[in-house]
Simulated assay, not measured.
Amino acid sequence: MNQDFVHPSKKRVIIVAMTGNMLLNFSGPADVFINAEKYLEDCGIFDGYDVKVVSPGSNKKVDSAAGFCINCEYSVADIQDSIDTLIIAGNDSREASQLSLIEFYNWLATRNEQNTRRIASICGGAFVLAKAGILHGRKATTHWQSSERLSKTYPDVEVNSNPFFTKDGYVYTSAGVSSGIDLSLAMVEEDYNRDIAIHVARKLVYYLSRPGFQAQFGILLPVYESDNIGQKTQNWLNEHLHEKLDVSQIASQLNMSTRNFTRVFHRETGMPPAKFVEKLRVEAARKYLEDTDISLERLAELCGLGGLVSMRRTFLRHLNTTPSDYRRAFRTSLKDSGITELLSQDVASLANTR
């Protein structure tokens, strides 16, 4: 092995850039640890981080989702001794790639608590750790869109789609791609102290501890097929969310009895009608919070969420955040381009129908 690769006095951080993924999967964590290393040296601390982004394949090439190829200096095959922090950045689930990944999975199977202080995954990298058996019986997090699939594919893994990252023993898993930055900052704080981590976060113009939970980003209702009863009722419901709705009223729109409607609705959507309506109200409220400046009181009325206290409780239950915090985090960046005025007209039109 090239002796320049080895820095025994530093914590070796190996980031495996899985092919076909977004650049932020590996560039985000790499930037955190590289900036931490620079700041540590400025502080006279010379046992910081030695960061290497490596390929899973022996050809040392990584295809990115951006359409260009990254040439890594090293591959996992070059690493046979101990690692401080191993990060699996993303997952290459393409059928055509599986044969070439056999060597990588064989290598990953040799990694354990004796030769690797901590093993982590970014986004879909949780599937890689699960496939390698590293997540067996452990708590784990992945992107909210993939959580259900991870749980079904690996039922021995306790999947939680809510936090930005999860730690279970020496294994760390994170949510969507930007969550790799959250996790890496937490690791820097764990290794040194909060002040070091805060400096890196400020350098990257990022939160040290991002407020909220991953639930804020998820979609509460799936997209149903056109013949699904959820989709059949959704358009009508969207126009009547400001009204007090009951199951019999919704059932009558489909010329069904209340009992039969409830049975069919639960079977085809996986939830009772009342829960579906509540989620639809929250989704409508999210859109108003993102795109308009209307008051929370008026917004609660338009979406049928009752008063401010009731709407706040409903948001906390579904999104783990309050309406006001959600607005601050997700309000539109197009506020000055006329979109607010257009949406305000829609709100006024809806109000006039009452």
Rank of each mutant, 00 (worst) to 15 (best):
A77H: 00
L204H: 12
C69Q: 10
Y154E: 11
L245W: 06
E95H: 11
K11A: 03
V264F: 10
N260D: 14
I122K: 03
F261T: 06
L24T: 14
K232G: 01
I294N: 02
P222V: 14
E290D: 03
K52H: 09
F33I: 14
L24I: 15
R281H: 01
M271Q: 13
S184M: 06
G180S: 02
Q216K: 15
R354A: 13
F276V: 08
P8V: 02
V51K: 11
K287H: 11
I88W: 00
N59G: 13
R259N: 14
M187P: 03
P29G: 15
K232S: 06
I14M: 10
T142M: 04
I339L: 11
E103G: 12
A17E: 04
N238K: 15
H199D: 14
G28N: 03
T314H: 04
R263D: 07
L86W: 05
E341I: 07
L129A: 07
I119G: 01
L245Q: 04
S184F: 11
N162V: 10
K10C: 10
R263I: 08
I14N: 05
K61E: 12
V205A: 15
I294S: 09
V223W: 04
N59I: 07
D4Q: 12
L319T: 00
D4P: 10
M18S: 13
S257M: 12
Y74V: 01
D325G: 01
T166C: 01
E243I: 15
V347S: 05
H199P: 09
K38C: 12
A132W: 13
Y224H: 04
S64D: 05
A126W: 00
V177P: 00
A126L: 03
A65P: 00
N228S: 03
F315S: 06
L40I: 00
